[in-house]
């Protein structure tokens, strides 16, 4: 598979899997406003998924479309980061996962608005406003939860400590990422990591949370198709219809 197709699938897979996770909370949010917010964020991510998949499918030229990519691949074919497939847990877990992702997503999408690939640039420009809104919201909530009650502080700190090991993958560039940097499509890892650490540090400071060490041991493998056990369960639900009735259409 061409490097750019893999790179585009990674973007689409991140957006789709996180969207699906957030959708699980539809009707179960801790408050009506949070319920609407989570599902709206899920919707934005789903729309972004379609733009990435549509472009990946076009370049691949193998006759697969957006639906085929979403519903007819098994876990080892997905290229999303491990962070986005982690379970929703409690609300602090959900929001910490979101905040870590949103921060990376925002700086990545911002950089991709300067990509050398015109279509990538267009998709990034389209997504940037949505991603900005997501990050402002999740950053706000981390401050409120961290600098809240003793219970919310403890849960938020625990969420940060637990999810931290999944954040290294964003900046752990493999041959595909490096080829994309060399081709001028994607931004380099180091400046992105510096921006990510700075923003997470700012928000954690305001939230009175202790930031885990940037040098801590990090998980990896999601981008290469080696996933945690959680992804299989997620796909089993998301892909049920197409597995039971392959090719079914509305």
């Amino acid at each position: 598979m061409d490097d750019i197709v893999t790179y585009l699938l990674r973007q689409g897979d991140n957006a789709l899997i996180l969207s699906q996770r957030l959708s699980e909370l539809c009707g179960k949010g801790p408050a009506l406003e949070e319920d609407m917010a989570l599902t709206n964020v899920a919707l934005d991510l789903l729309g972004q998924t379609r733009m990435w998949y549509a472009y990946a499918a076009e370049l691949e030229g193998a006759g697969r479309d957006e639906d085929r990519l979403a519903y007819h691949r098994d876990a080892h074919d997905f290229r999303n980061c491990l962070l986005v497939e982690q379970n929703n847990g409690n609300y602090a877990d959900t929001m910490m996962r979101q905040f870590f992702f949103d921060t990376w997503h925002y700086f990545l999408i911002g950089a991709l608005t300067r990509s050398g690939d015109a279509r990538v640039r267009e998709i990034a420009e389209k997504s940037l406003k949505e991603v900005t809104y997501h990050l402002r919201r999740s950053g706000d909530l981390i401050v409120r939860l961290g600098d809240g009650t003793d219970v919310s502080h403890a849960k938020t700190q625990a969420a940060a400590d637990e999810l931290w090991m999944y954040t290294g993958e964003f900046f752990n560039y493999d041959a595909v990422d490096q080829a994309m940097v060399a081709a001028g499509v994607a931004p380099a890892a180091e400046p992105l990591r510096a921006q990510w650490l700075a923003h997470v540090g700012d928000i954690f400071g305001e939230a009175t949370l202790a930031m885990p060490s940037p040098e801590a041991w990090m998980q990896k493998g999601g981008k290469q198709g080696r996933h945690s056990e959680h992804l299989g369960y997620l796909l089993a639900e998301m892909q049920f219809l197409q597995r039971a009735y392959p090719g079914a259409e509305w």
């Binding site: 300067r114 420009e125 940037l128 900005t132 990050l135 402002r136 706000d140 401050v143 921006q195 700012d202």
Partner: peptide
Amino acid sequence: RVVDISGLRKGGDLAAGVKRGAI
């Protein structure tokens, strides 16, 4: 008026766009 995307493309400061209190 909304985010000036063209400004970001020219190398605008992304970090400023999400700094709490500065928005």
